[in-house]
Write a protein that binds this DNA or RNA. Sequence first.
DNA 1: TAATCAAATGTTAGCGCTACCATTACTTTT
DNA 2: AAAAGTAATGGTAGCGCTAACATTTGATTA
Lengths: 329, 329
Amino acid sequence: MQPTLSDVAKEAGVSAITVSRVLNAPEQVRPATRARIESAIDKVGYVRNMLAGSLASASSRVIAAIVPSLSNVVFIEVINGLQSEFERHGYQILLGNTDYDLERECQLVRTFLGWSPSALVITGLRHSDACQRILQQWEGPIVEIMELGDAIGFNVGLDHTEAGRCMARHLVQRGYRRIIYVAAQIERDYRAELRYRGHREVLQAAGLEAPLLDMDQLGQFETGARALDQVLARHPNTDAIHFANDDLASGALLHANRQGIRVPEDIAIAGFNGLPIGQHVTPRLTTIVSPREVIGQMAAREVIARLEGEQTLYSSHDVGFTLSVGEST
Amino acid sequence: MQPTLSDVAKEAGVSAITVSRVLNAPEQVRPATRARIESAIDKVGYVRNMLAGSLASASSRVIAAIVPSLSNVVFIEVINGLQSEFERHGYQILLGNTDYDLERECQLVRTFLGWSPSALVITGLRHSDACQRILQQWEGPIVEIMELGDAIGFNVGLDHTEAGRCMARHLVQRGYRRIIYVAAQIERDYRAELRYRGHREVLQAAGLEAPLLDMDQLGQFETGARALDQVLARHPNTDAIHFANDDLASGALLHANRQGIRVPEDIAIAGFNGLPIGQHVTPRLTTIVSPREVIGQMAAREVIARLEGEQTLYSSHDVGFTLSVGEST
DNA sequence: TAATCAAATGTTAGCGCTACCATTACTTTT
DNA sequence: AAAAGTAATGGTAGCGCTAACATTTGATTA
């Protein structure tokens, strides 16, 4: 059996609560006593029981983080940003993956709240009704990341509709007229859809059509390559492809290289995210750079500030984006 | 205040333990009673308190997973494999990131064990002495992943030394004679070092030198590109580069494309991991494919089997690897 | 119908810790 | 030297749940 606080207390000849203080507020214990207790801790090989502590104090120093996917580098970077900030302040991350499924998200939120997390970081602004209700009722800090809009708690992200507009404007300005938007399973990725809406808006305003090609597998290189083939076969006079993300776009670009299709002369290619790969392919990919790690860090900082008692009001933070023009458009 | 089990019990006119049973072993409760309790749960908006439950039952259904990095896709895929298996069986993942720091690893292990996890999944076989002691003392299942060797618990991984040998043999066989091994911060990445050892062994056996170039930043495309420049400048008659991973190798390959350096005529390039990108660059990257997600899944399955009472003995599982020959060598 | 037994439900006692208040030890002040 | 104050430590109760055993209910059998 693991030794408990009172085993340590017995060993050190003090009461359990004094040992607890050494762990939680060492400055309240006289240095001599503290040293004695610390060596007792080592001696009996005490490992703190976080469950009991969190139950008694009703606070766990656990952050529940819910993302839609772990296959997508973007969320990894966000998690990385969260981690780096939270770990520094002594918080642990409980990680959940919804696989873009709102039902699963609801289930996860339910379970995670049962851990009395110090805060909840969740991706996106769209949740099932049940989930929405649970979130609204919960008293701890909530941060909704990635998108901007009508949030329950604090909100860190960027305006995806505007990002879509921005890229569409760029393409139109460059003189492209037969532009297709290519996504992978767009109905599951609301942010890709928002970008499409912005894109379509701009194209229609310019009197252009805004066709959409939705691939039925989740987006990686392979899907991008296949999408390029499909576009060339079915819409042969397309002059530019606006991809929903850099994975797809890079896949298409690398495929074009292999096939001897010239970019942008035969067809222009644009992406979204600003992944490193886009800057290393030839030609460099035109894309929209989103500060992904910053989203995680901002979210974490906001939560930490709140938890340490600073009275910040719930509000939202636009991390913005940058159009990075490569030679692919 | 959140409603508790006894609030639900009062509402449903039963005792708390019956409600507990509905949650943990519904088949033990008569359907009529169960239905009544379930609607009471909905009515009062009950959210289960995992802390209290885990404390009382001394089991948390949390899996502590410790990886050295989240910037490396490889670990993401492993985590993904773990997630998909564990989540299906109702386990949550508590995620820790050591940043390749053994002290930090020890600290994380300490903290995580305080959560009474159902199991601990940890990367690698090398731990600090203190950590080693803590792990040995702990009673729950431990899985050490990625490497194979002298493990404390169950062991899922591959033989990195052999992988290094395999690639070196391939290069020698292809006729390359001035082969350099390029890594990024090799002293932090023990597995990259193991591969180098295998590589060196083969080269020396063939009467060749086995120089090592260690880049001082962690490996991404950029580092690979820079490494290629350095090799060409400082070791101009090198005919092949064996990179410690595909990120570096792809970075170098894409850089070569940009610079008009011909691969493999001017210089051959090989990697390790079998990341998708390697199969989409031109020429395709020669690499060693490791079944990353399988490692996570295997680890998870083993743990689950153990937890559900199957009496499997601690042992190790070699997931193997495959040499994938592209046109880059 | 009583005896028997399994299924369903309840009672009690803690899991290991911390909040809250009480007490004791040690300073400082006048 | 007594009073007043502060710092350090302790006692008690309870966080919300479940394990272990106890009891009740209802079905089955002789």
